[in-house]
């Protein structure tokens, strides 16, 4: 049985289609991410599952039973909010025990379970503090403990790591992933950070303008993007269209080529059988630590991004300079043919 199932779900605000005919099936025990730029409908989808919004049309099933029309407090899902939404007037322990309290769990049991939940997020001993006395990362953990203490079958996370600094975010990413494996709960994770989605998820749905462009494993999403939007939003891609696509692939359809799959040369080298080559002028060189990024302008005016891993200092001496004509080549296998999504 699927944990959450959307069937032709739409949510309109007047003329604005925040969610437009979305159908997805999220499996039980899955770490599922909803990825997209702001305003793409991913958070609205999460709120539809939590019950803060009701769909304009379509059906939402949670563990097989129809959830459309049910208020949030009758759904077996819990949410970790983007702003944590802790109750400012309660101690941390009461915050965590709140879900058990309103369900009528006795005082001894609920405090014991709340303590356990706090220990699970490594916050034992913080129970007597008020939320205002905690750091952002600690509040985030309290919000997580407060949701998990209810043992929900589905946990919704609305950009929970957005407010944390990079190091803390990476640490929380691996802890969340570990926690999800350990508990076996379905996690539905909303984020606009593609690297976060790729590193944590079993599957990722990429949202654009209220629609889903692709649902796939992180690996397939990166290696086999379906649409130009996915190719450019997940990682960096060169999407080539029109004449250029026709010349290189023999087809009108656009294709994408990842910057790290392209090699540069300043003179004509023999091409392998499956390789293609284009000609361009170097515009810009960016040193990025692990790699160096080159921006080329091709003869037809398109720009092409090329990324080369930085090897040894000795090789750095002969870096090409802007204005220099270069040849770029790549294997045909690295090209991914794309299709434009159907117009909405």
């Amino acid at each position: 049985m699927s944990a959450v199932q959307f069937t032709h779900v739409s949510r309109h605000y007047g003329a604005v289609k925040a969610v437009d005919d979305v159908s997805i099936t999220i499996a039980e025990g899955e770490f599922f991410s909803m990825l997209g730029p702001s305003g793409s409908g991913k958070t609205t989808c999460l709120r539809l599952i939590a019950g803060f919004e009701q769909p304009s049309s379509g059906s939402i099933r949670i563990h097989g039973s129809e959830a459309t029309g049910l208020p949030p407090y009758q759904r077996d899902v819990n949410t970790v909010f983007q702003d944590y939404a802790l109750f400012p007037h309660m101690q941390v322990l009461d915050n965590v025990a709140y879900g058990l309290k309103v369900k009528g769990v006795g005082k001894t049991e609920r405090y014991q379970r709340a303590e356990e939940a706090l220990a699970m997020v490594a916050l034992d001993g913080f129970g007597q503090r008020k939320p205002a006395q905690l750091s952002g990362g600690q509040r985030q953990r309290v919000a997580l403990a407060r949701a998990l203490v209810n043992r929900p079958r589905v946990l919704l996370l609305d950009e929970p790591l957005g407010a944390l600094d990079l190091k803390l975010r990476e640490q929380m990413q691996s802890e969340l992933k570990k926690l999800q494996r350990q508990l076996g709960i379905t996690f539905i994770f909303v984020t606009h950070d593609q690297s976060e989605a790729l590193s944590m998820s079993d599957r990722v749905a990429v949202f654009n303008r209220g629609r889903i462009e692709q649902v796939d494993t992180p690996r397939n999403l990166y290696m086999q993007p379906a649409t130009p939007f996915v190719a450019e939003f997940v990682g960096t891609s060169n999407v080539l269209r029109g004449e250029m696509a026709l010349a290189l692939t023999g087809q009108q359809r656009p294709f994408s080529i990842r910057p790290e799959h392209i090699r540069l040369a300043d003179q004509q080298l023999p091409l392998a059988a499956d390789e293609v080559q284009v000609r361009g002028v170097l515009q810009d060189v960016q040193y990025q630590g692990a790699a160096t990024r080159f921006e080329l302008r091709l003869d037809n005016g398109d720009s092409l991004t090329v990324s080369c891993a930085n090897a040894f200092a000795a090789e750095q001496d002969s870096l090409p300079q802007p204005g220099q004509p270069l040849l770029a080549r790549w294997s045909r296998q690295a090209m991914v043919s794309l299709h434009e999504p159907l117009a909405g």
Partner: peptide
């Protein structure tokens, strides 16, 4: 919303 989400009527 958090209160409702945690099951409070």
């Amino acid at each position: 919303q958090a209160s409702a989400d945690l099951g409070a009527t």
